[in-house]
Structures are given as structure tokens and as C-alpha cells.
Design a protein around this nucleic acid. Structure first.
Ligand code: FES
Ligand code: FES
Lengths: 143, 143
DNA sequence: TGTAATTAAGACAAAATTGTCCGTTATTTG
DNA sequence: CAAATAACGGACAATTTTGTCTTAATTACA
């Protein structure tokens, strides 16, 4: 499994926020229903993103969440790093400590290029890219 | 996390088996000690590989495990597929059902090429490659 | 033939992830 | 100000993964 469920939910939710026309707040309940994500679980995931500044939130009636930065300034890398950590982008495929620092493991030559491509692409793609693509090509984001 | 711990252990163990000079059986206890893997856990992982024919085992004194096929005929893909399943090579990054069959999700354009490279490389690299590299370049496989 | 070695198999425990519930806090609206 | 709304935060439950332990089955060898 490349991403945890928490991270998948977080990506879906932020893309959805990036797709909004204005900058009004969207309730987490709405997002949870849209994607059939357990509401309270999504709440916690979005709290992580809020603490990281990727999402902004406000309590109370008419409250909810929205992106905390320009969608152009948020990358897929950022979202994954906040929720799952940067491990997937740096760690040894076999779990040995300090990939790249010591002697490589047998999988290094295989894994390092793929991981690099993964990291570069993730840093290169913004939430704006993802959201506008989704609208333009009418991609499937919910179930 | 790309691979489960079970899978990492399985890869380490099979590389180790591929590095053996003759085809005598190596005890699982020996492998577990070599790599500091929980013995009974490794036992179960190797049972999966045994059932799949990648590993051969024999009980009793002088028993143990060895590769069940020519190391040239076992790929990294095979090992991962047996232990973690083929999901990582086929599944939608966001967990939507039927990646590639229906409308793509927003992450598809990002993920599909990386996943393809991952699968192709994993199918292209054999246990013989991994094991001989490890010996030739004196790579670090244990801790 | 009997004993030690070693995998197989299943039950169980611990830890991590995922999911649920409830009370608190803050905000809008009437 | 009161009521409704909605995020926050903590406790707790379910599930999955990881790790441990015990017993059975099989093999080598003295
Ligand atoms: S050392 Fe293992 S992948 Fe780099
Ligand atoms: S449909 Fe999501 S990665 Fe292909």
C-alpha cells in the first residue's frame, strides 16, 4: 500500500477544495458525504492539514474548511508529507537505516530511481493542476 | 509505506538464499538471526513463499529452506506479489475501484507512469541479479 | 529406536491503523 | 441572548499487521 487511507482521504478532500469556485468554507460533513469517507476520521485528517497551513478552518455555522494557500502553491508532495510523512520519499525499500548515507542495500539501484521520479513528480504537481484537470476532463474523484 | 514488513523480510531472506554457494538447506533460525527478524514471523512469511514454489523447505535435522527455482527465474515482482499481493502494481492511488477500467481519477496521470516503471523494473530484476550484485559489490543486506 | 533438530500450524498478544462517539468551543442567525 | 451549526479534542472500539508461544509433524543421526 503506497498511501495510508488517511492520506488518500486527505488528497481527495484537498482536490475537492481546490475545485471550489469561490473561497467560502465547505463543511467537512459535506466532503465526507461526497466521498463516502468516515466523517470523524476525515475531521482528524483535515486537522493535520490545518495545523500545517494547507487548509484553513473556521468553527460554527457557515464554518468549514478551505485551502489555506494558493492552490498553485500546494503540491501533492506537501499533502503526502504532512499526512504520511516523508518516509516514502527517502526511506530504504528494505527498511535499513540511512538509505543513501551508507552502503546501499541490494534494492537501492532498483528503488532509488523510481522513488526519485515519484518525489520529483509529486513536487511538480500542484493542487491547482489536479483540480483543474478534474474539472476540465471531468475525472472521477468520488466513488 | 511501500512494502509491508513481511515483504521486506521475505525479500531479504530470498536474496540471502540466492547468495548461497550450494543448494543445501539453510535454517530459518539462521536467517532470522542474520537479519534480526522475529523468527516465528519469518517462518510464516517463508511458508507463503514455499506454498508459491519460490522457496523449498524440508523439516527435521539438517532441514531448512532454499530457493525452489533457478534464481534467474524468480523476479522481485514474484516475491512482492506473493507476500503483499499485486495491488501495488495495479491499484488506483486514491483507492478507487478499477483503475484503468473506468474514467481515471485525478492522480492517474501522475501515478500510472510511476507504477508502470515500478512494475516493469520489478519484473525485469531477478533474484540472481540481486544476489550476485550483493556479493560482487559487497552491499549491505543485514543491519 | 530414540533423541535432537527443524518446519508447519494454530492460538494468542501487542501495536498500529482505522473508525465511532461524545462533550467543548466558537460562530452565525434570528 | 438563544439556538443551531460546525470544527476541535479526547476517549474508546474495531480491524489489521506484527510479533510471541506452544504443539505437532518430519527428518537425520547416534
Ligand atoms: S539503501 Fe535500501 S533502498 Fe537505498
Ligand atoms: S484511477 Fe486512480 S490511479 Fe488510476
Amino acid at each position: 500500500m503506497l498511501l495510508t487511507s488517511a492520506c488518500k482521504y486527505g488528497i481527495q478532500a484537498t482536490i475537492y477544495l481546490g475545485m471550489q469556485k469561490d473561497d467560502s468554507f465547505v463543511s467537512i460533513k459535506k466532503i465526507a458525504e461526497e466521498f463516502t469517507i468516515p466523517f470523524h476520521f476525515l475531521t482528524k485528517v483535515l486537522q493535520l492539514l490545518t495545523q500545517a497551513g494547507i487548509v484553513e478552518s473556521t468553527k460554527g455555522a457557515k464554518g468549514g474548511v478551505r485551502l489555506g494557500k494558493d492552490p498553485d502553491a500546494i503540491t501533492l508532495f506537501d499533502i503526502i508529507a504532512v499526512i504520511d510523512g516523508e518516509g516514502i520519499f527517502h526511506d530504504c525499500m528494505l527498511g535499513l537505516p540511512g538509505c543513501g548515507l551508507n552502503t546501499p542495500c541490494p534494492a537501492h539501484e532498483f528503488w532509488a530511481p523510481i522513488r526519485t521520479k515519484y518525489e520529483k513528480s509529486a513536487r511538480a504537481i500542484s493542487l491547482k493542476d489536479l483540480a483543474s484537470d478534474t474539472i476540465r476532463k471531468n475525472l472521477r474523484i468520488g466513488k
